[in-house]
Design a protein around this nucleic acid. Structure first.
Length: 252
DNA sequence: ATAGAAGCTAGTTTTACATCA
DNA sequence: CGTGATGTAAAACTAGCTTCT
């Protein structure tokens, strides 16, 4: 018990039905709370009173999509939350919402559990919320945003990979066109002296062998490891496979 | 078959903070 | 050094969808 708790002079008078107040617990289901306490630390107490009012506002406005679980959890942890994490559900005095800034420890723990499973079941969510002294809803939102960030990052990586791929293919295309041009010139000069083999199309004379890969394969391991699944169920690696198959089909 | 709860994604808004002129 | 504009990351929100009971 800290100094403030020992000296808590709160006098509660309560009637009626459940409007939640900061100091209200499950055992103390008063809905009308006449607070006659003497502020031990006037500045802190004043700001906390604003906080408790804003929590009610938040309950009604900002968290309209809150689940029953969350509401129960909030009731259970109402006091603890306001005491140990003033960020949670803390609105500014003008009514605008105040953004929660997670601590380094909270972020680390969230990241760690995200590494284990990127989605949470209800039990895991509750447990994590309890551990971090946050609301299950906040855990849920964090995971939603984290998934979105991961996906975006993945898409950006795929995009840059495809760009490189495209550049490589263009280079290859230019090189082959140049080579073809040279071959044609050579062919025109010496056509009548050449054996029949040289008159065959280039792709027959210079077939793609199993050792030759799609130009994108030169990009390194990351390209081969990438397994982004597109909406139609394909992937980059699958595209590479298709490319090779198509080349083989042309030759056969 | 239908309703409602819960969870998800995608997109948006809002806030805090950093950077720069 | 202070200040306002601007950009960015992230928390929180909304709408719409699917799944399950």
């Amino acid at each position: 018990m800290n100094e403030r708790e020992r000296c808590d002079t709160t006098l509660g008078l309560g009637i009626g039905v459940g409007i939640k107040r900061e100091r209200q617990t499950k055992q103390n289901q008063r809905s009308f709370w006449l607070d006659l306490s003497l502020p031990l630390h006037p500045k802190i107490e004043a700001s906390e009173h604003v906080h408790s009012y804003d929590n009610e506002k938040d309950d009604q406005d900002s968290f309209s999509s809150k689940t029953i679980d969350d509401q129960e959890e909030e009731e259970e942890r109402g006091i603890k939350r306001s005491a140990s994490n003033t960020n949670v559900y803390n609105n500014n005095s003008d009514g605008s919402r105040k953004k929660l800034k997670l601590t380094a420890e909270q972020t680390t723990l969230l990241e760690d559990s995200f590494k284990i499973h990127c989605t949470l079941n209800t039990g895991q969510k509750q447990e994590l919320a309890k551990k971090l002294n946050l609301l299950p809803r906040q855990i849920e939102v964090w995971f939603q945003n984290r998934r979105a960030r991961t996906k975006l990052k993945h898409i950006e990586q795929e995009c840059s990979l495809l760009k490189k791929c495209c550049e490589t293919l263009n280079d290859e295309n230019r090189r082959l066109k140049k080579e073809l041009q040279e071959m044609r010139c050579y062919s025109l000069k010496f056509d009548h002296h050449q054996p029949p083999h040289s008159q065959l199309p280039l792709y027959v004379r210079y077939p793609i062998t199993s050792e030759m890969h799609h130009p994108c394969d030169k990009l390194g391991k990351s390209g081969q490891d990438t397994k982004t699944v597109f909406e139609n169920g394909g992937s980059i690696t699958q595209m590479h496979g298709n490319y090779k198959r198509n080349a083989a089909d042309k030759l056969s």
